Structure formats: structure tokens, C-alpha cells
Amino acid sequence: SDFTIRIGDRTLHLKNVSEEILKILEELLRRGIDFEELRKIVEELIK
């Protein structure tokens, strides 16, 4: 499924993301992860 994360004025667009990855990202966001850290993790996950 497609997913968009907005943190402040920044946006991260994800396409064809599995439910498992979404759950991980949601947990990281709940813990207050930094946007740049989140972006790096996402890039690793979707390689």
C-alpha cells in the first residue's frame, strides 16, 4: 500500500509498503524518531 509521512514541513512518500514495514515505521514515529533517521531507515528497507 502507499503511505505518506509528514513531519513538520517535510514529506516522505512510500509506495508498495508492506503492513509489517508500516507497523515498524509507526512504532518509530511513536518513539519520536528524527525525520532524517526515519528517511535513512526507509531507504534501507525499500532497497
Rank of each mutant, 00 (worst) to 15 (best):
L22E: 05
L22M: 13
K40C: 09
E44S: 11
I21Q: 15
D9G: 12
D2M: 00
G32A: 09
L38K: 01
E36K: 06
L38Y: 04
D9H: 09
G8N: 04
E20A: 10
E36A: 08
I5H: 01
K47P: 14
D2S: 03
T11Q: 04
E20M: 06
E27F: 15
T4R: 05
K15E: 04
N16F: 04
E37F: 07
I41W: 07
I5A: 02
L29V: 08
F3L: 10
F3H: 04
H13N: 05
T11V: 15
G32N: 13
R10Q: 12
R30A: 10
L38F: 15
K40H: 13
K23Q: 11
L29C: 06
F3I: 14
I5W: 01
L28M: 11
L38I: 09
I5E: 00
V42D: 01
D2K: 00
L22C: 04
L12M: 10
F3R: 02
L14E: 00
K15Y: 12
I5V: 07
R39D: 05
E44H: 10
E19T: 15
I46S: 10
L22F: 09
D2T: 00
D2H: 01
R30V: 08
I33G: 07
D2F: 01
S18W: 01
E19S: 11
E43M: 12
V17W: 02
R39L: 14
D9I: 03
E43P: 06
K23T: 12
I7N: 02
L38T: 04
T11H: 09
I41Y: 08
V17D: 02
R30M: 08
R30D: 04
K23S: 12
I5P: 00
G32D: 10
E37G: 09
R31H: 07
T4V: 13
R39W: 14
V17T: 03
L45I: 09
T11M: 06
R39H: 10
I46W: 13
L12N: 00
G8K: 03
E37R: 09
I41N: 08
R31F: 05
G32L: 04
E26D: 08
D9R: 04
V17R: 01
R10H: 08
R30N: 09
L45V: 07
G8R: 02
I21K: 08
D9N: 11
F35M: 07
K15N: 04
K23E: 08
I5R: 00
L29P: 02
T11R: 03
R30K: 09
L25G: 02
I33L: 12
L14S: 00
L29N: 03
T4D: 05
L45M: 11
D34K: 11
H13A: 05
L38A: 01
E26R: 15
E43D: 14
T11I: 11
E37N: 09
S18C: 02
L22R: 14
T4Q: 06
I21E: 15
I5L: 03
I21W: 10
L22T: 12
D9E: 11
T11A: 04
K15S: 07
S18I: 02
L28K: 06
I7C: 10
E19Q: 13
R31V: 09
S18T: 09
V42A: 14
E26Q: 15
I33T: 11
S18Y: 01
I21C: 03
K15I: 04
V17L: 05
K40T: 13
L14Y: 04
L45D: 03
D34M: 10
E20S: 09
V17C: 03
L14A: 01
R39M: 13
E19L: 11
F35Q: 03
I5K: 00
I24M: 12
I5C: 02
R30T: 11
E27K: 08
I7D: 02
E19H: 11
K47N: 12
K47T: 14
I7H: 02
K47V: 12
R6T: 14
N16Y: 06
F3K: 02
R31D: 06
D9M: 05
R10W: 13
E36Y: 13
I33D: 06
F3N: 01
I24V: 12
V17I: 10
L28Q: 07
D34C: 02
K40M: 13
K23Y: 14
L22G: 09
L38S: 01
E27N: 13
I46Y: 14
L14F: 09
E36G: 05
E26M: 15
S1A: 08
E20G: 09
E43K: 07
L25A: 08
L12S: 00
I5S: 00
R10F: 12
K40F: 13
L14W: 03
S1M: 14
E27M: 15
F35E: 04
T4K: 06
K47S: 12
E37V: 11
N16W: 06
R10C: 06
E19C: 07
F3Q: 02
D9P: 05
E43I: 08
D34I: 07
H13Q: 07
T4S: 05
I46V: 14
L28C: 05
G32Y: 05
K47D: 10
E37M: 11
L12E: 00
S1T: 13
T11K: 03
L45T: 06
V42M: 06
I41S: 07
R39T: 13
L14R: 00
T11D: 02
R31Y: 07
I5Q: 00
L12R: 00
I46M: 15
E20I: 05
D9Y: 01
K23C: 06
E20Y: 15
I24A: 10
L28E: 07
R6A: 10
E44N: 13
I33F: 07
G8S: 01
K47G: 13
D34A: 12
I7A: 02
E27R: 10
I7W: 08
R31C: 04
I24C: 07
E43A: 13
G32H: 09
T11Y: 06
R39A: 12
R10N: 09
I24W: 06
R10D: 06
G8L: 02
K47F: 14
G32Q: 12
L25F: 04
R30F: 11
E36I: 06
N16Q: 04
S18H: 04
R31Q: 09
T11W: 03
N16K: 04
D9Q: 08
D9F: 03
V17K: 01
V17Y: 01
G32K: 09
I46T: 12
L25I: 15
G8Q: 03
G32T: 08
L29T: 06
E44V: 11
R10L: 06
I41A: 07
I7T: 01
R6K: 13
I46Q: 13
N16M: 06
F35I: 04
R31I: 07
I41L: 10
I24L: 10
F35A: 04
R6Q: 12
L12P: 00
I46H: 10
S18V: 03
R30S: 11
T4F: 06
I33M: 09
L25W: 02
N16T: 02
V42L: 08
G8M: 02
K47I: 12
V42G: 04
E43W: 15
R31G: 06
R30Q: 11
D34W: 04
I41R: 10
K40G: 10
R6F: 03
K40L: 15
E27A: 14
E36P: 04
I24N: 08
L22W: 13
I7F: 06
H13W: 05
L45H: 07
R31W: 06
R30C: 05
V42K: 01
R10I: 07
E20C: 03
L22P: 04
L14M: 04
S1K: 13
I41D: 03
D34R: 08
E19N: 11
E43H: 13
S1R: 14
H13E: 06
E36V: 09
S1L: 14
V17S: 02
D34G: 15
I21R: 05
T4P: 01
V42E: 01
L28S: 07
E36F: 14
E26H: 15
L29Q: 04
I7V: 08
V42C: 03
L38P: 01
L14V: 04
I21F: 13
E44W: 14
T11S: 06
G8T: 00
L28G: 02
F3Y: 08
I24Y: 13
R10P: 00
I46L: 14
L38G: 01
V17E: 01
L22K: 15
L22H: 10
L28N: 05
I41F: 09
R39V: 14
R6W: 02
G8V: 01
H13I: 13
G32I: 05
L45A: 06
F3S: 01
I33N: 07
L25K: 00
E44P: 07
E37S: 14
S1W: 13
V17P: 06
I33P: 08
L22I: 15
R31S: 05
F35K: 03
D34N: 12
D2I: 01
E43N: 10
E26N: 12
T4C: 06
E37P: 07
L14H: 00
E43T: 09
N16P: 01
I24P: 05
L14G: 00
L22S: 09
I33E: 05
I41M: 09
L25D: 00
L28A: 07
I41P: 01
E26W: 15
S18F: 02
I7E: 01
E26F: 15
E43R: 08
I24T: 12
E19P: 15
L12Y: 14
L12T: 00
K15L: 03
I46G: 12
L29W: 11
G8H: 02
D9S: 08
E43C: 07
R39F: 14
K47R: 08
L25C: 04
E37T: 15
S18D: 08
I33H: 08
L38E: 01
N16I: 04
D9W: 02
T4M: 07
K15P: 03
R10G: 03
V42I: 08
L38V: 06
R6D: 05
E26A: 15
L12C: 02
L12V: 03
L29A: 05
L29R: 04
I33Y: 13
I21D: 12
V42S: 12
E19W: 14
E20K: 10
K40N: 11
K15W: 06
G8E: 03
E26Y: 15
K15F: 07
I24E: 10
G32R: 04
E36C: 07
I21S: 11
